[in-house]
Design a binder for these strands. Structure first.
Length: 103
DNA sequence: AAAATGACCTGGG
DNA sequence: ACCCAGGCCATTT
């Protein structure tokens, strides 16, 4: 894993504002990578000082072993999950977006 | 060197 | 909702 992409990915994740989320694939795309797996791998390795909970699967679910923790952290900033699934429609972040329309 | 393993994604039936 | 196939790619067996 080269140093550069590692920092790229971290920078992208760090830039996600509270109350919004991105998928692993989104992060990969923004960071200029071709694989979402790499993003997951980097976060798995070291996510200590990042808002890692704002990154989830493209379908709004999260990995089993993180489910409790991640949804709780998201709930704390206003991102509500319907059961095990977060609505990407509502919370997905795009850098230029305006206030989201209701439901 | 070859195969398995992930905090993954997309498209199809 | 379900299952499956194929793509993805660094790291570890």
């Amino acid at each position: 894993m080269n140093e550069e992409t590692w920092e790229q990915v971290r920078a992208v994740v760090a830039s996600i504002p509270p109350g919004s989320v991105l998928s692993y694939g989104d992060v990969a795309e923004i960071a200029g990578l071709r694989s979402a797996r790499i993003v997951g791998r980097i976060l798995a390795e070291d996510s200590a000082d990042l808002p890692w909970h704002r990154v989830l699967r493209s379908n709004g679910t999260v990995a089993e072993h993180l489910r409790q923790r991640q949804l709780e952290l998201l709930r704390a900033e206003g991102v509500l999950a319907d059961g095990a699934r977060v609505s990407m429609r509502r919370y997905r972040w795009t850098p230029d977006e305006e206030p989201r329309p209701e439901v």
